[in-house]
Amino acid sequence: MIEGKDSIRRRYKKKRADLGPEQRAALSGQLIAQAMAFLASRGQVRHIHLFLPIARLYEVDTTLLIDRLVESGRKLYTSVTDFSAKKMQTVSLVPGTKWEEDERGIPVPSNFQVVEHEGQIDLVFLPLLAFDLEGFRIGYGMGYYDQFLSRLPNGVLKVGLSYFPAEERLPREHHDVPMDACILPKEILYFIR
């Protein structure tokens, strides 16, 4: 019997919590180093969408990437979720931005400008709980990122960041958008389509 998405979500949330703060911080540092190595050979990638970590869900600390990406000349974006419209809005992310948590604990820039033309984004770093060997991911089940990715032009790189290795195969639905790569603390996996 195939494990359901809700069961997988619970299992991976527990695995994250069980890591503890020191191990999560060390793994986040390794993931950021791998992300910079991934980008080192991709100078054409100039516009990057980055998720901001939800502390209570023990997500990868992507704030460690912000200054490094800006120093490398990249333009950064993140999202603000409009829960009533069930949609993410892309906003510019600038160095020195202060954060506030929204009603669900998601970090949101205190001052932001909505980006009307998302077509310039070259790469999206994706949050995930689990992923499989074919590049499909399981997030929190709201579908916001799959909806966001479906609005972007073909060719945008979709790259996950994961503390944990891939599952062999995860359950999926017709609207799930596969990743192009997933960065792990010690390696980078690429998915061929």
Results as ranks from 00 to 15, higher is better:
36 M>D: 10
36 M>R: 10
41 S>Q: 14
43 G>I: 00
43 G>M: 08
48 I>F: 15
50 L>Q: 05
54 I>C: 01
56 R>Q: 13
62 T>V: 09
63 T>P: 02
66 I>Q: 08
66 I>P: 09
66 I>E: 09
68 R>C: 10
68 R>A: 15
72 S>T: 15
72 S>A: 15
77 Y>P: 09
81 T>N: 06
82 D>Y: 04
84 S>V: 13
84 S>E: 14
84 S>A: 14
86 K>A: 15
89 Q>T: 04
94 V>G: 03
96 G>R: 04
98 K>H: 11
99 W>F: 13
100 E>K: 15
101 E>N: 11
103 E>T: 02
104 R>E: 01
105 G>E: 03
108 V>H: 05
108 V>Y: 01
108 V>N: 08
110 S>R: 14
111 N>W: 05
115 V>D: 03
116 E>V: 11
117 H>I: 13
118 E>Q: 03
121 I>F: 12
121 I>P: 13
122 D>E: 10
122 D>R: 03
122 D>L: 07
123 L>K: 08
124 V>E: 11
126 L>R: 04
127 P>F: 07
135 G>V: 12
136 F>Y: 15
138 I>H: 09
138 I>F: 11
139 G>C: 05
140 Y>L: 13
143 G>E: 07
143 G>Q: 01
146 D>Y: 00
147 Q>E: 11
148 F>T: 02
148 F>W: 01
149 L>T: 05
149 L>C: 06
150 S>H: 11
